[in-house]
Design a protein around this nucleic acid. Sequence first.
DNA 1: TCTTTTTCATAATGATCGCTCGTAAATATC
DNA 2: GATATTTACGAGCGATCATTATGAAAAAGA
Lengths: 210, 210
Amino acid sequence: MKKTSPANKRSPGRPRGFDRQAALETAMKTFWAHGYETTSISDLSRAMGINAPAIYSAFGDKKQLFLEAMRLYRGDPQRQAEAIAGAASAREAAAMVLANAIRTFTGKDTPKGCLVGTGLATGSPAAADVRAEGTAMRDTLEALLAGRIERDVSEGVLPPDTDAGTLAALVSCTVQGFSTLARDGASAAKLHAVTDLVLQGWPKEKSSSV
Amino acid sequence: MKKTSPANKRSPGRPRGFDRQAALETAMKTFWAHGYETTSISDLSRAMGINAPAIYSAFGDKKQLFLEAMRLYRGDPQRQAEAIAGAASAREAAAMVLANAIRTFTGKDTPKGCLVGTGLATGSPAAADVRAEGTAMRDTLEALLAGRIERDVSEGVLPPDTDAGTLAALVSCTVQGFSTLARDGASAAKLHAVTDLVLQGWPKEKSSSV
DNA sequence: TCTTTTTCATAATGATCGCTCGTAAATATC
DNA sequence: GATATTTACGAGCGATCATTATGAAAAAGA
């Protein structure tokens, strides 16, 4: 049984010859570029610069490595929830989510598109559980948005007949569409222009000042 | 060298023991469900009910089989072009494209989502040329839409400052987003509701009668 | 019936898959 | 230095990958 050293206290034995966090980031980018099942351990080994046994020793198996890369990609889920909850309005929350997606999907130093959306788009039945994690991530975002929209409705910012589920789905749909467009080569500017059109589907807010 | 019999004239030799078109349809659905690289020949062999050598004899190799399945999935490209060109307006062309996507992505007898969008979302460098075919398909649709939009602009149906490229990208983006939403389990009704919101981003037409 | 042509199923090709064993090397504590 | 512990790394595990060689079987024309 392997033991993950606490890193704050030096443990005996030969020290690890590579930076675990840097290796994880490289693995994330490799999965991002080529997908979960279509990235082999030997691909990862080559990209990370460490041999296969070292990968297994440090990260478990391929599935655990991908899930950890996925968590690194997603970032802190609580921060995301707070950002959506703390936005001035549901519309601004949506705009922020879309802007973040554009930045992530068209980054200069990372592969284009969404790691989760593209890397888990399809696959064998053996990877169904990993794909379910991806679906759960999208569902979580959609639920957060729907909740923020409903708050706007109950506070009178949005009309009472607003369909929060559909509106949240509009944002989620756009994010996923951005992933494919970005992978096809769309620029950030183009996606921002699309964002402006999409947000025209947003219900009129009861203007307070303007 | 194999010879694809013209089917109208009987050729000598043992007759094929399976329906080529039915086998192709089964292959299409299998690729649709599990993706291009993540579907193995043995998966296809099992699903199609024919042994591997028969697949190679009838369809060439895996790449050719997928490309043929892709063409079957897409349908007649000229029909698509004519449908978009023949629509009463660019907006109606967009609505038609989105409705078709919803029907295709949520069909009862086929896998959910888009064969091309999900089956080629990522993969190894060895399959880059096949992915490029998928991108080309999306680019073609977007170009057809942009052309139809520009016609509306030049005919005065849409405002002269309409950005045809962005508007076409909005539709393409929505189609691709629908693929992921459908795969995540979204109903056709939900996607139709999203369509209504998306089309609110469409520029106001100069109303002729109403 | 005999030859020709095509398809069939079995079995095997070399390569790669995810993963692990065994041993040498490098650090800690004693 | 001795011992314990951990990692590095070459080699190899069985399984599966896409693909094909082989030869029997089934049809046509002679």
